[in-house]
Design a protein around this nucleic acid. Structure first.
Length: 924
RNA sequence: GGGCUCGUAGAUCAGUGGUAGAUCGACACCUUCGCAAGGUGUAGGCCCCGGGUUCAAAUCCCGGCGAGUCCA
């Protein structure tokens, strides 16, 4: 760590009379203007110094503070850019939610592959950190939702090739960053003498660099990170994670100024929540009927202030501190808790509602996977808190209060989603409590506690929290087996082996080959071309041929590879698959065309044409779905094919038949308009500025320029091949919809010829059905309904008749053989009817006080034996014996047994033996 | 993406291989001046679908469809 010391000897510190000191409490090194200072200023070395003592000239609301910051940096030559969505998984696959402003620029911008939207830039980025969820509301300082105000500058070293990275040269670095920070504090009216800059090197995600924590009146108000190193076993710096790092070609100024912290310090309220959500807190208190007397108000204020001065980083710290605080104020700890808990819930509700506003406003759709699951968790937690504290305002209204404040435009959809989710949650709770009630009743009878096993099952499979089980069990007079590490036990159930996928090893030879020219972009309609074979790789099941240029489209963006052939004068090889690896296109063939040969390539035109139709149709469908279902519709995956294609997207409800028809109608309208499908390669910043993030439905491509495909009003970044005009699609027919996950719907559709074929197939089925029923296709549903009804009627009628028949037979009309078995009479009879009839007859005989032994030949040999009450014959034993004679088995309760076997020839013999069997069983 | 749970009458659910059930609701009748309530009775089931095992499957196995839930 000491190796970084030189990194902090800034000219700015020198020229402004800063001194470097070592904290007497924690030993950290820091820079200050105050020669007499001995501690770094950060809790626990020092207490909060701003509560009831605001640190700046003016009090600011959240909105005012955000504007102060952004306009300050705008005035200092930074471009203000719009915040990114909180759903970071839209542009990177390593995280779900945006947790810092730098997330916006990872990994493509920070690595230099892609230029930043502006340089330098300033932003206030909404972030969500779920890690702190248990602390929110309780500690007075933790929030789940926050905005990270930041300014960023992206630099590359002067000595690297200017063409190597998407930006070049140094914008500014450490001195300028610290100077901006100092100046901003000063502009807010802070006393700069009190600021300390603590040296605190930063490490994260394979990168590292020197960093400075900026502390003012006990609050960490900014972190200045100088990202400039990457992990490297041979690197010259060893960082605090024990790994070695070396300098990179790019170096990035990554700052973070907590908007909520700044707002809080400007107001000096006891908790951050009161500074950030004053209106919402008032509303919630009023709604929940939390009405404090002046005295209580003073106690709460006093307690919060004391807590503020303590080192409370976890909710548990708060519980522990409660006694101390109560003691100091001079009231009972229990009384204090009773006073504080409702307020803590209210604080948490306000924060959670803002979190939800960000998530849903940024069009995350609740689901059981990914970010959708996180949104659902937050929503359910919020609902529970509302119920706890007695807030009865509808949750969608509460979320909307925040959405309005954050100026989201899709507020109606957000409310709709919240209402749908609350309803789903209510159903889950209903289902759950019924289940628990039943269980509780069961266990209260046996006096056993409900075992942990059941609790885990209830939570894991049915989403019921243990405390809810306890509550209901209590009402039913049952207890619950308590366990320490409940969630640990749940986690155990999810242990997975984690099968590792084998990495495909790259060919050294491949890396030396030039990128293949992509003719399929120059002429999307073309199907024949000429090329030179640059290299051939022998594979297990064929060859990989590399050409200098190709028209074969490699698999990508959900579009399968082209197939076709490569021909020399002597021979023709079939191309079965095409892949692109680092810009080099590999043609998998069944033969060796010869390195250096001149080849003519020919792609399967019909197949390609269908793929192009389907690809363009995919854009049309997603656009139509957006139009019909709402702006939250976003592609979640797609696969094109020859006969049909499918597209998955987020939606919070099942798609109705009506909606499908409407989507189909809108899609075909676009087809019939026959507008041109165009392609362009604009600078990504211009593209983003004009079309926003929705460009990247299928993932974010790297590079300065990106390929855009315009289909009617729809614009998407896309690497696929497309038809020239929408009319070339021919027709679009939705084939089916399914729910692939909760909140993710899949539409399978067909375009062009496949649409016609698909429709014809469904019609064939309908016509065939109509022919069988001998009605017109239009009459099929009505007729089917009538037939089904009649079929059921007949079934019932047959039942009735069988019973009547059985009664008649039992009455003597059947002519079975009557034998005496001790004091009882048995009827042995062969009926040749189905099992139902046999059973009915047997029952009727039993009614008359007779033992029934019935045999039948239908689908093998079958027996039914029934014994009236009070007769000492075990029916099961009789059947077992008889069934054995026909090569099968049987059994059942002592008064009614069934059985049979495959050997029908032996049926009569078995029945002849029945009287003996009966007597044997009776004697046994 | 993975794990787990579930699918039976209009609703909620029993039913662990041997004759498909309960409660509520619906309907009819009784009781009542009338209503609530009560009583008696009746109707209402492709046991999600398709295969397999078995003498026999709502039940066991495999696949599909539908729903729920937890985790990443």
């Amino acid at each position: 760590m000491s190796e970084l010391e030189a990194e902090y000897r800034l000219e700015y510190f020198e020229t402004n009379d800063f001194v470097r000191k070592e904290c007497t409490e924690c030993g950290a090194h820091f820079w200050t203007r105050d020669e007499s200072r001995t501690t770094c200023g950060e809790p626990p070395c020092e207490e909060y110094g701003f509560i009831d003592n605001p640190g700046f000239d003016d009090e600011h609301s959240l909105e005012e503070m955000r504007e102060e910051f952004l306009s300050f940096f705008e005035a200092h030559d930074h471009e203000r850019i719009d915040p990114y969505p909180v759903a970071a998984n839209r542009w990177r696959d390593d995280v779900l939610l945006t947790q810092a402003s730098i997330y916006d620029f990872q990994p493509l911008v920070t690595s230099g592959q892609t230029p930043p939207p502006a340089n330098p830039l300033t932003i206030s980025q909404p972030c969500i950190r779920m890690q702190d969820i248990d602390n929110v509301g309780k500690t007075g300082r933790h929030t789940m939702a926050f905005e990270m105000m930041a300014h960023h500058a992206f630099n590359t070293r002067e000595d690297v090739d200017p063409d190597k990275y998407a930006y070049h040269g140094e914008v500014y670095w450490k001195d300028q960053t610290v100077e901006y920070c100092d100046e901003f504090f000063e502009s807010m009216g802070a006393n700069v003498e009190e600021i300390t800059y603590i040296e605190d090197p930063w490490v994260g995600g394979g990168n590292a660099g020197p960093a400075i924590e900026v502390i003012y009146r006990g609050a960490e108000l900014a972190t200045l990170v100088f990202m400039s190193m990457e992990q490297d076993p041979d690197g010259e710096y060893e960082m605090k994670d024990g790994n070695r790092y070396s300098k990179m070609d790019t170096y990035v100024v990554d700052t973070g100024y907590g908007l909520e912290r700044w707002t809080w310090v400007s107001q000096g309220t006891p908790t951050v929540y009161e500074a950030v959500y004053p209106d919402m807190i008032d509303f919630l208190k009023d709604n929940a009927g939390v009405d404090l007397t002046d005295h209580e108000e003073a106690v709460v204020h006093h307690a919060a202030k004391l807590a503020g001065h303590m080192d409370i980083d976890e909710a548990e710290d708060m519980e522990a501190a409660r006694d101390t605080i109560a003691d100091e104020i001079g009231i009972d700890a229990a009384d204090l808790e009773e006073l504080m808990v409702p307020l803590e819930d209210i604080y948490a509700i306000a924060d959670h509602c803002r979190t939800l506003a960000y998530m849903l406003g940024d069009e995350i759709v609740p689901s059981n996977v990914g970010t959708g699951y996180l949104a659902r968790m937050v929503l359910r937690r919020t609902k529970r808190l509302c119920d706890n504290v007695g807030v009865d305002a509808p949750l969608d209204e509460l979320v909307d209060m925040q959405a309005e404040r954050l100026e989201y435009e899709n507020r109606d959809t957000v409310r709709d989603i919240v209402r749908t989710e609350v309803e789903k949650y209510r159903e889950t709770l209903d289902r759950g409590s019924r289940r628990v009630e039943q269980l509780a009743e069961e266990y209260s009878q046996s006096d056993d506690p409900i075992p942990t096993e059941e609790l885990i099952e209830l939570y894991d499979s049915h989403g019921i929290q243990p405390d809810m089980v306890e509550e209901i069990a209590d009402e039913k007079g049952a207890s619950v087996e308590t366990v320490d590490d409940f969630y640990g036990l749940v986690a155990e159930r999810h242990d997975t082996g984690g099968a590792l996928e084998a990495e495909t090893e790259g060919d050294e030879r491949l890396q030396d080959l030039p990128e293949t020219d992509r003719l399929y972009y120059e002429d999307q309609e073309g199907t024949e071309f000429e090329a030179v074979v640059l290299d051939v790789f022998e594979r297990e099941d064929g060859y990989d041929v590399v050409l200098d240029q190709t028209m074969f489209y490699p698999e990508g963006g959900g579009q399968p590879a082209d197939t076709g052939s490569l021909s020399t004068d002597e021979a023709t090889v079939e191309v079965t698959d095409v892949q692109r690896v680092d810009g080099v296109i590999l043609h998998r063939t069944d033969g060796e065309p010869g390195k250096g040969e001149f080849v003519r390539g020919k792609i399967d035109a019909g197949r390609r044409r269908q793929l192009m139709r389907h690809h363009t149709a995919t854009h049309v469908i997603i656009h139509s779905a957006r139009e019909v279902l709402g702006d939250h519709i976003r592609q979640a995956g797609a696969q094109k094919g020859v006969d049909s294609s499918r597209i998955d997207f987020n939606h919070y409800d099942r798609i109705s038949r009506e909606e499908i028809k409407e989507i189909e109608r809108v899609a075909n309208e676009i087809v019939m308009e026959n507008t041109s499908v165009s392609e362009e390669w604009p600078h990504r910043n211009e593209a983003e500025a004009e079309h926003g993030f929705d460009l990247y439905q299928g993932g974010i491509p790297p590079g300065t320029n990106i390929r855009l495909i315009h289909v009617a009003e729809d614009v998407q970044a896309c690497g696929g091949t497309h038809v020239n005009r929408t009319g070339d699609i021919g027709a679009i027919k939705v084939r089916s919809t399914e729910r692939v996950q909760d909140g993710v719907e899949r539409i399978t559709f067909a375009a062009g010829e496949a649409a016609i074929e698909g429709t014809q197939r469904s019609e064939d089925a309908l016509y065939e059905a109509a022919e069988i029923l001998d009605v017109t296709p239009q009459q099929v549903p009505e007729t089917a309904e009538r037939f089904f009804g009649e079929w059921k009627e007949r079934g019932k009628r047959i039942e009735e008749l069988k019973e009547e028949l059985a009664a008649a037979r039992a009455g003597g009309a059947g002519g079975g053989e009557e034998v005496d078995v001790g004091d009882a009479t048995a009827v042995v009879q062969r009926l040749d009817a189905d099992m139902d009839e046999l059973r009915a007859t047997a029952n009727a005989l039993v009614e008359e006080g007779k033992i029934a032994v019935l045999g039948s030949e239908s689908d093998g040999a079958q027996f039914v034996v029934a014994v009236p009450e009070g007769v000492n014959v075990n029916a099961g034993d009789v059947v077992g014996e008889l069934a054995g004679k026909v090569g099968g088995g049987g059994g059942g309760p002592p008064d009614f047994a069934q059985g049979g076997g495959p050997d029908t020839d032996a049926l009569d013999d078995a029945l002849d033996d029945a009287p003996d069997v009966l007597r044997q069983v009776r004697n046994a």
